[in-house]
Design a protein around this nucleic acid. Structure first.
Lengths: 220, 220
DNA sequence: CAAGAAGCAGACCACTTGGTCTACATTACC
DNA sequence: GGTAATGTAGACCAAGTGGTCTGCTTCTTG
């Protein structure tokens, strides 16, 4: 079945990868409806038929791409507890999310469009997982508040704010680039990350952790 | 030419309005490519031909819708100067932007998609206007910093953060609604606005203005 | 009332596009 | 080596869609 080929990947697996990558690029720029299968095929350097060979329908392919982007949502924050330091945890979370925006802007954009379009391809399981993750995080933050590590605030909106600010750099990079006249590079992201952490943490009444100085980036 | 009809509007003008509204709804949900002119016509209760009668092409219609959304971007912040109080100005700006998200979520979503898609329909004039607005605001904020009204920070990213947090409530309302299990109502927005102002202003080292208590909403 | 303008709407066309059919090539495995 | 699975690819089709053509009704105005 799956045989070894170039770089321990079968021909099929390799083509699938190429297709998924090409599809990500197209869907992120033109959306689901706006992307022709032919375009993806061209981008992947394959005839259209082969794309449909590996993915029965355009929608199947789209869902596969979407599924991949969701895997990026995992974070260290997932495992944080009341015993952890809120400043550290939130600073790391923001850093991670900014890194995702920098290194995977296409994924962020696909997710954003999916949501804007009413999330027609995110099934109930996603909702459940997402909501339970959310509730878990809210509990932790409420824990911090009740033990006095964090001043009272609504955890829900804090999370929304973090998502908004970090994802904005991926989703709206076109606007940002045009305003600045040049693309944001890694150092710009670091600068933005540092300020965002400072503003949000200070805004929550937290001390900005010293480790921020050497903000090691989660390289990709 | 334009004659008076129902409610001081010619037949043509009234139809145009209906079409623009229907188009806004469709474009916001399905994007440009994903919206069929027929769909807009149905939504507006007119035959497709009439839509094309009032707007030569689908793209013309789309640009008209987009243009309308841009008019919502105007704000009191446009006229702020160094002499104003940063806390007041920023709090008002955030409040205004949150109100736009609440009362015109479709417009926000259309703009978001346009940007995500690389802003193919925003011509150079928009860029220029936008950039000069941005520079003006940055100057004011830098002015505040240099006279000691505001602690040093990068004004550019502060603005991005404000846009991100406020627009998020419109663009990602699907996600938010699913997470909460119910739609955000006006009081939820007020709550979110209050916290956002508190966090951001405190994060910038500003005192939260007392007027926040009676946060009069810019009703629509 | 006449005539032109504005508005209305069915029929129609050209083209894009998702997806299928069919046939051929290559590889894996007994 | 034979055979079955996997992969490749051109030809093709049916549906959807943007936009035009043509002819009509209604309104406005001199």
């Amino acid at each position: 079945m799956a045989r070894q080929k170039s770089a321990d990947m079968g021909v099929g697996a390799m083509n699938k990868r190429k297709i998924l990558q090409a599809a990500e690029k197209c869907f992120a720029q033109f959306g689901f409806k706006g992307t022709a299968v032919q375009k993806i095929a061209d981008e992947a350097g394959l005839p259209k038929t082969n794309v449909l060979y590996y993915f029965k329908t355009k929608q199947d392919l789209y869902v596969a791409v979407l599924q991949e982007t969701l895997s990026l949502w995992n974070s260290q924050f997932d495992r944080a507890t009341v015993d952890d330091d809120p400043a550290e945890v939130l600073a790391s979370y923001i850093t991670e999310k900014m890194e995702v925006s920098r290194t995977h802007p296409l994924a962020s954009r696909i997710f954003a469009m999916e949501i804007i379009n009413g999330a027609p391809n995110l099934n109930g399981y996603f909702d459940e997982d997402h909501a339970s993750w959310m509730n878990g995080r809210i509990s932790v933050i409420e824990g911090w508040i009740s033990v006095g590590k964090l001043q009272p605030l609504d955890p829900e909106h804090l999370l929304y704010n973090i998502w908004a600010c970090t994802q904005h750099y991926a989703d709206f990079s076109t606007q940002i680039t045009r305003l600045r006249g040049k693309k944001m590079v890694k150092s710009d992201y670091e600068h933005a990350t540092k300020q965002l952490i400072t503003v949000l943490l200070t805004g929550c009444g937290l001390e900005v952790p010293q480790t921020l100085k050497e903000l090691e980036s989660v390289e990709e």
